[in-house]
């Protein structure tokens, strides 16, 4: 564990807390893509199949359980909570996310570290996580307005990705055998998807104005 990875994990956790806070405090999920949240739930369940086979640390197991539980809870609220589900921007959240699932799985069948069920699901989860934010970004683009908590949620998610890149550079320089090419290349792609959002986030922060994305 290095400082960059810890910072990445903490900003990831913070992003989920911000999202839960928004849903809990405002009883609303407006501006949040249910499709992105469903993709994250699939990502965590597929990636953490090793929860039962490899023990790494109490921290690792605890965080995995938190990520699986929180992502399922968010999807449950958006689908079934009587008040929250009413605020869901159904007509704006039309990205065909099943394509992303299919394409990621196909890629995992071709590119993986080992041809085992666990490794293929691991690679699938890495590819899917890289593109899972797309329905959310499309929804924001369509609605134009971004409320503060939603903006912060995406900002922290992007920060988590940026810290993970620093973590990989650090590990590459300090660990003799660190070569996780699948994770690193997908991670860079994933972070690049946030670049546009970050640009507008910083502009609004600098001007002290409300975050607005161009149509």
């Amino acid at each position: 564990m290095n400082i960059f990875r810890l910072a990445g994990d903490m900003t990831h956790l913070l992003s989920i807390l911000v999202l839960l806070l928004k849903i809990y405090a405002t009883k609303s999920c407006s501006g949040i893509s249910r499709k992105t949240q469903e993709l994250y739930a699939i990502v965590f369940v597929a990636r953490y199949l090793d929860l039962f086979t490899d023990f790494i640390s109490v921290y690792n197991t605890f965080m995995k359980v938190v990520f699986i539980a929180s992502s399922l809870a968010i999807v449950w609220c958006m689908r079934f909570h009587p008040m929250v589900r009413r605020s869901y921007d159904r007509e704006l959240d039309t990205f065909r996310h099943y394509f992303l699932v299919g394409a990621s799985f196909a890629l995992a069948l071709i590119l993986h570290e080992k041809f085992t069920v666990q490794e293929i699901f691991w690679a699938f989860s890495i590819y899917l996580e890289a593109v899972a934010i797309l329905p959310q970004l499309v929804l924001l683009q369509r609605s134009g307005n971004v409320d503060n908590l939603t903006g912060q949620y995406i900002f922290f998610l992007g920060a988590y990705r940026a810290f993970y890149i620093l973590n990989w550079i650090y590990r590459y320089l300090t660990e003799p055998h660190f070569t996780r090419w699948i994770a690193c290349v997908s991670g860079v792609v994933q972070t690049a998807l946030y670049a546009d959002f970050f640009y507008y986030y910083f502009i609004s922060w600098k001007n002290n104005s409300k975050l607005k994305l161009p149509a």
Binding site: R5, D50, D54, N60, M63, Y164, N167, A183
Partner: peptide, 10 residues
């Protein structure tokens, strides 16, 4: 031979 360590990142 070198054995791949378990995946320790989240």
């Amino acid at each position: 031979c070198y054995q791949e360590p378990p995946k320790d990142e989240l």
